[in-house]
């Protein structure tokens, strides 16, 4: 097998390139990570390239002193889990039906769906809609509007096309309903794409702060990222506001706190990836087909 062959020059070139990529990607994380621990008197003078000369946990204290941070974590986790599951199931179900040959109205449906990717009415009508639907200031505002996207639907469709037609046909001959086929043939054979879309969706929901700003007024419903965003509010401040704040003698949030907030906000979701990776390995699907 291939694993027996000796390493060639080509292998070494690949390794060198990938090591360079690794360094370029990890250095910003390192920079953020170590500087989030910098002591205030060091951080005042600027960030350190490799290692701050004095360390402290002050920045993390600022982040964790926020009284809503725990409820924020809960909401974010709950939201990410529920939204990812509903999105993947709902979008893949529509995608499966849309990918079947001979579906009446397919072209029209496709156009209807395509338009949703390019056109949107903007913030104000969406806001009014959420109020009318009773979703304003409700947990479900995180879930329902995000249940479907055209983009993910076509990605599902393109993967579903690679499932051998024979598998589906044989199930149909056994008298399985379409939903049954989708549920017990198509889904189990699509682990890589489910893992991928699931990851994309989970990361989106984990990182989204905007819905928490616009559609939620109850602080107990705010997700983590909204709370962290508030903590760092002046990054989005206009210069007029900033001048006003400085005129007051207010202190701008130091870079250290920004970095600490980022670490707190993204460490959990970063840890998700190794688990997802399990499903991105070769032969998963093939095994299922053969089995």
């Amino acid at each position: 097998m291939r694993t027996h062959t000796k390493k060639t020059a080509f292998d070494y070139i690949i390794i060198v390139i990938l090591l360079a990529v690794c360094f370029a990607c990890i250095y910003p994380m390192w920079y953020i990570g170590v500087n989030s621990f910098a002591a205030p008197e060091v951080a005042n003078r600027g960030a350190s390239a490799w290692w701050p000369s004095a360390l402290s946990l002050d920045a993390y204290k600022v982040v964790f002193e926020n009284e809503y941070i725990l409820s924020g974590f809960k909401i974010t986790i709950l939201r990410t889990v529920v939204a990812t599951i509903t999105h993947v199931l709902f979008t893949s179900m529509v995608a499966y039906a849309m990918s079947r040959p001979g579906l009446i109205g397919k072209k029209v449906y496709m156009k209807i769906a395509m338009i949703t990717m390019f056109f949107n009415g903007g913030l104000i009508p969406n806001f009014i809609l959420m109020i009318k639907l009773g979703l304003y200031d409700s947990f479900w505002v995180y879930i329902l509007p995000g249940m479907f996207t055209f983009y993910n639907m076509v990605i599902f469709m393109s993967f579903f096309r690679t499932i051998p037609e024979s598998l589906i046909e044989s199930a149909r001959l056994d008298g399985a309903s379409e939903f049954r086929i989708y549920w017990s043939i198509v889904l189990p054979n699509s682990r890589p794409v489910i893992a991928t879309i699931g990851l994309f969706t989970a990361v989106y929901h984990w990182n989204d702060y905007y819905q928490g700003i616009v559609y939620v007024r109850d602080k107990a419903l705010e997700p983590l990222q909204t709370i962290l965003y508030k903590l760092l509010a002046e990054t989005s401040m206009t210069s007029a506001q900033q001048q006003a704040m400085l005129a007051l003698g207010g202190e701008t949030t130091s870079a250290t706190v920004k970095f600490a907030a980022m670490v707190v906000g993204s460490l959990p979701i970063i840890c998700l990836y190794p688990f997802i990776q399990k499903h991105l390995v070769k032969g998963v699907m093939l095994g299922a087909i053969k089995g």
């Binding site: 913030l123 304003y136 928490g212 700003i213 616009v214 909204t226 989005s236 006003a244």
Partner: peptide
């Protein structure tokens, strides 16, 4: 406000949920 001041006030005006007192630049 969490994000843009005007954006949030506009939405409050539209939804009829303006707070009692408003201090604004």
């Amino acid at each position: 406000p969490t994000g843009d001041v005007s954006e949030e006030l506009n939405l409050m005006m539209i939804s009829g949920t303006l707070p009692d007192l408003i201090t604004l630049g």
